[in-house]
Every structure is written in structure tokens, then in C-alpha cells.
Write a protein that binds this DNA or RNA. Structure first.
Lengths: 227, 227
DNA sequence: AAGGTATTAATTGTCGACAATTTAAACTTA
DNA sequence: TAAGTTTAAATTGTCGACAATTAATACCTT
């Protein structure tokens, strides 16, 4: 009989399902930034009790998508230039570190697979010029892989579990696309090349620049949106 | 009638109390690393229901003091050289960043207050040579202040709320004291001087070295403890 | 007696209801 | 009418009980 992989025995609970659903809705902007989260309302909407809902809210707070105050309740976070800046300051440091570690720990096979993924992104991107979603997902995928390659569980947790939903929220709600798409691809390629050459220092530097450029790009959008 | 300060209206809930109590017990080693957390047992022990207890467990997971698996339960984390290394890799990056930001954002008054705190540490330390607790608390205090001075909420959250309990757990359970106490003081002084001179780059460098030295110190203890 | 299976016990996940607190509304008073 | 106070409604925090899942025990088979 087929042997089920050991770690895949992570049971999916009701709290998980509602978490992912609300998470998606907040990132997509379907639940307005700054709006209040009503536990009874959400419980009705997802047809479950408040217990698993509160578990989900605890995790939403953990990834900075909502803010909770005792006896008062939860609100969806609001986006701001300051918030974006704070977020990207940390990304620069930690993803730079991730690059150094990835250059140290990623296997040749993992690097090759990521290289193929990049080529796939290029193909997809050429076909659908200016389409934002794929670039978005692709970019996230690239950063995800590097971070996973760092082999540092705390680093992975902070970046992938706690900060990345907020990063995506900024990019999705500001409708990021435009001419930076192709340049981002080149930057990804350069970073990966440095990692393939086991040059962690260079990969670190390039990643910091890449993130800084990405931040400036989003800040530009934020400014020209007036707010 | 006297006006209560606005932000101090944060209600203390039952979940908060039990959280702090368990947090302290884990950091102090009163609850053995690797041991299983029994919800019914803890609920009886603290004389409350499982609802606030589970809220507390969610937050304990957030600061990496326990690990939870769905439908299985929670275990207290185990300490390891690898875990310490992972933790300090992140501290080096983020507290270095905190120094750069603190040099930018801390007011002269805040810097002066921290300077006085350091002198207080020196006095206390001279009186109680080799006493670890005060140095421990003092060191934590120093790092706390720098981090708070960074003015970056995400940075503050990651370091002070999510990672520092684990840092303290390593130091407490390994009984850190010994000759590094006085050298750590000098390093603190140098870092603060750099910040006072608004030399963020130097403060960054010195902080990274300080943390690296601290890590090596703890690793030495871990090794000579055989495990 | 060893290995595997079925049964039992214990633990976690979820539910509905109540208590404590906060927010909104109604009311009073100047 | 505006401000402050009192009352009512709604929301969050907590509780005890049940369902679903996991861990432990007893049982059977070879």
C-alpha cells in the first residue's frame, strides 16, 4: 500500500480554512483597510462558531493583517508610506541574509530548479505583457525559494509567514505592474547567478538593491495616488 | 477628576495573566524543554477554562517558546546550538538595523537616559561581581532601548515580542555569567557613543560584533555542557 | 512472545450560552 | 441646542459540554 509522506499528516482544521479565506479577502482588499472585524458577523458568514474564528484572528494578527485591542476588537490594517518603508527596511536586511545563507546551503539541484522557474516566468511574462498577477506571483515565488533555501527556520517564519502577506497586500492593492516587470526579472537572474557562483556577499548586495528598487517603485505609486 | 493616560487603557485579560506566568516558567526552565503541554492540566493549575489558555498558547507559539501541531498539541521548544545560531543570525541583522535607525531617530534626551542607565548597570555590576541576573536584565534592557529607539514597529515587534523571550531562555538556562559581563558593558558603551555621535554605520558594526561575541560565548557554554 | 488489530481512554477542536466590558442611544440639564 | 449623564444594545472574554481525532490499552493471531 502506498506510503503517505510523514509530514503531510497536518490536519486541516476549520480555523485554517477560515483563516486562509479571510487572509485572501484582506490581501485582495475585499475587506476594506481600517474596517472593523465583527466576530459574530464573520462567524455567521462562514457558518462556524467564534472559537475557530478567534484562532484565525490570532494568526491574522501574527501576520500583521489585523490589529487587535483587548475588549475592543480587531481592525484591518491601513496601508501607508511609513508602513511600507518599515516593512521594506526589514526585508532588505533579512532577505539579504537569506541570500548569503542560500548561497551556502542551496543544493545545485535546487538552484537549477529555480533557474528553470525563472525561465518559465520569462516565457509567461513575454506572452502576457503588463499582466500583473503572474509577475506578482512569480516574484513572490522567487523570493520564497531563496528564503526557504536559507535553511533558517526563524528567518523563514518571519518572512514567509509573518511579513509576506502584508507585502502582497501592498502590491495587490496598489495594482503593481508597469515597466518594472522586465527589470525585476533581470535582477532576479543576477541574484540567482550570484548564488549559483556561491557568492553570498554579492547575492546579498543585489537582493538589497532589488528590494530597495521595488520599494521606490511602490512608493512612487503611493505618492501619485495622492495619499 | 484625574485623567488617565490614553494608551494605558489596555485591559488585562485572564489570557494575559496566564500567558506571562507560563512564559516566565518556560524561560526559567520550570517547565522542561521538550515536555508536552497539557491543556486540561494547565487549565486546572491556573484555575481557568481552556479558552483563555488556548489564547495564551497561541501567543507562546508566536514567541517560539512552544511548538503546536493540529490535533496533537503543544510542546515546549528544545534548545540547540543550531537554534541558537539561527536566532543570533537574525539578531545580528535586525539589531544592526535598529542601531542605524536609533542613531537617526533617538532624541538627545533618550540617549542621555540610556547613558545614565548604563552607568547604573556599571555600579550594580561592580557591587555584585559575577551575579548573572542583573547583567542579564541589564543587557536585555540596553538592547530593548535601542530597538525601541529604532521607531520601526515591525522591528520592535519581531525583536522584543517574538525573539527576545527565546534569547532570554537560552541565557537563563545556560546560566550565563562569568568574565564576559564587564566586556559586554564596554561594548554597550561604545555602541551608545556611536549612536550619540549619530554614526549609525559604526553603531551597526559594533552591535553586530557585540552580538556575535555574545553568541560565541553562549556556544562555548553549550559545548562544554556536552550537549 | 512478537506483531498487528480492535477497543478504550485521553486530548484537541468546536459549539452555544453567559458574564464583563465597551459602544451606541436615550435622556436630562443648563 | 450642546454637553454631560444614564440607560440600553452590541461586542468581546470566558465557561462548560460535546464531537472529532489521537494516543494508549487490551486483545487476538501466528
Amino acid at each position: 500500500m502506498s506510503e503517505v509522506s510523514y509530514n503531510s499528516r497536518l490536519a486541516i482544521t476549520a480555523a485554517d480554512r477560515v483563516l486562509h479565506e479571510i487572509q485572501r479577502a484582506i490581501v485582495a482588499g475585499e475587506i476594506t483597510p481600517g474596517s472593523k472585524i465583527s466576530e459574530p458577523e464573520l462567524a455567521r458568514r462562514f457558518d462556524l462558531s467564534r472559537a475557530p474564528l478567534r484562532e484565525a484572528l490570532a494568526r491574522l494578527e501574527r501576520c500583521h493583517l489585523i490589529e487587535r485591542l483587548p475588549n475592543i476588537g480587531a481592525r484591518v490594517v491601513t496601508l501607508s508610506i511609513a508602513g511600507l518603508s518599515w516593512l521594506y527596511q526589514i526585508r532588505e536586511e533579512l532577505e539579504g541574509l537569506a541570500c548569503r545563507l542560500a548561497a551556502q546551503h542551496m543544493t545545485d539541484q535546487q538552484i537549477n530548479e529555480l533557474c528553470q522557474l525563472l525561465d518559465l516566468h520569462l516565457a509567461t511574462q513575454r506572452v502576457r505583457e503588463g499582466e500583473s498577477y503572474y509577475q506578482e506571483a512569480g516574484d513572490v515565488d522567487f523570493h520564497y525559494r531563496i528564503i526557504q533555501g536559507s535553511n533558517n527556520p526563524y528567518l523563514i517564519n518571519i518572512l514567509c509567514d509573518e511579513l509576506y502577506y502584508l507585502v502582497r497586500m501592498y502590491r495587490v492593492q496598489l495594482g503593481m505592474n508597469g515597466p518594472r516587470v522586465s527589470r525585476a526579472f533581470d535582477e532576479h537572474k543576477a541574484i540567482l547567478t550570484a548564488i549559483a557562483n556561491r557568492d553570498g556577499e554579492l547575492a546579498d548586495l543585489l537582493m538589497r538593491r532589488h528590494i530597495a528598487a521595488s520599494r521606490l517603485n511602490i512608493e512612487k505609486h503611493l505618492h501619485q495616488l495622492g495619499k
